[in-house]
Write a protein that binds this DNA or RNA. Structure first.
Lengths: 227, 227
DNA sequence: TGAATAGTGTCTTTCAGACAATATGCC
DNA sequence: GGCATATTGTCTGAAAGACACTATTCA
């Protein structure tokens, strides 16, 4: 590139797509949104939502577009994951895909807004059907990254509403790490990190003692050891 | 992508390149290899080594190719960093670039093997000239990642020869974090992590008391808190 | 009053960090 | 013997982890 006169027609170009791994927590488990393919290749298989990056569109905007089409929601946490580009990952042509992952509070989702329910479905993150393309590999990478991010940043709070209880938060961590934490130690740690602010509100209409509500204080990007 | 009949000619495709940030440690500082551009755009500016991903080539292979062309060395540690694709980052056409970073022991480098020395030069990582394209942004991202990787993995050992002293290792960390560590605490930590193996060899022909040599025990990818 | 979760404190162990004196090979 | 780096241990403070009982709301 550096030492040649540039002539775009000289090079056959790959296609570029984005694929989005949309995580949420629902029914006490980590869920991933998949779309059933209606066409060749991998017709009938489940796949990550994705699509082409158009010629004048920032990559992240393409990912956002897919995300909004499938969930009906804007302003979702979105982060670039990794770029996969094995020459034979798509039987149609050379396709390089830039993967993103998104975290969303399931209360906010409005699936029907855009997609026929039979085509889009939430799957338990650890009980997935056969996936199209190399999407299994992409998902495994995303799961690794998700665990790391929960351990070292506050992105895990994206699974929660703006006001949440420490019990809610602990459940998020327990689901994703698939183990239990001691309630006293968990609270001690979260409170000592100074990442949450107590509100004056108390949850109500729960069939047990209600809990105080908290909000997140820290900014989301920051690296801060949580666990 | 999922719901349309595929017709490659329907979409105007971006060009896809790789750019490689090659780090080494030389003369007690962290260095980055840059190439002087001889053509428009950014003629005369310094830029990261990079080039097009050809149509049947795995992305990482393109990065390896650039790396070997510039350093004359194979089997260098190489890791995908991030994909940059702002529509106007290259004035010629839409170019999406997948960046990689490489760590290499400076003893292994053979710059002259491939490139005219006036075109390729090592720069102090914190005293860079004006860079072409968005390469400054890419480099800043790479520096962040490098620091993180040294803190949480054993990639830092890639700056060292296979057999090294604990003093060598400490110097790598001191250069990249730009601070000094207590020698006793540093050794205590490295040895307690069980990531190095002592050899029976002793460095020799140094103008002071020679040190025992160590080799790395752990695999490189693994996440393990070092500092 | 029973069900279900909220809320709270202490002890022990482990790890991080501060700190300085002696040893050795080479010239 | 002088130079330059190697090698080694203790103490202190902070944080992690184990552990169990009482409180509160609602049905």
């Amino acid at each position: 590139m550096e030492n040649e006169i540039y002539d775009p027609s000289k090079f056959e170009r790959p296609s570029v797509t984005v694929d989005v791994i949309i995580f949420t927590i629902k029914d006490n488990s980590l869920k991933i949104l998949l779309i059933k393919r209606g066409k060749w290749p991998f017709k009938g298989y489940w796949a990550l939502p994705g699509g082409f990056v158009t010629i004048n569109e920032p990559i992240e905007m393409a990912a956002k577009r897919e995300l909004e089409e499938e969930t009906g929601v804007k302003n979702i946490y979105l982060e670039q994951l990794y770029t996969f580009g094995d020459p034979d990952r798509d039987p149609r042509t050379r396709v390089i895909t830039i993967s993103y992952f998104a975290l969303i509070n399931s209360k906010n989702i409005n699936l029907k807004a855009s997609t026929d329910a039979s085509d889009a479905q939430w799957f338990h993150a650890h009980r997935l059907p056969k996936l199209a393309f190399d999407h299994k590999k992409i998902l495994e990478y995303a799961l690794q990254r998700l665990r790391w991010k929960l351990e070292y940043t506050t992105v895990g709070f994206k699974f929660l509403p703006q006001k949440f209880t420490l019990g809610n938060l602990q459940r998020v961590y327990e689901i994703i790490f698939n183990k239990t934490f001691d309630k006293r130690n968990f609270r001690k740690k979260i409170l000592s990190l100074n990442i949450v602010k107590t509100t004056k509100e108390i949850a109500s209409h729960v069939p047990h003692r209600p809990s105080r509500l908290y909000t997140l204080r820290k900014s989301i990007g920051e690296i801060i050891k949580i666990l």
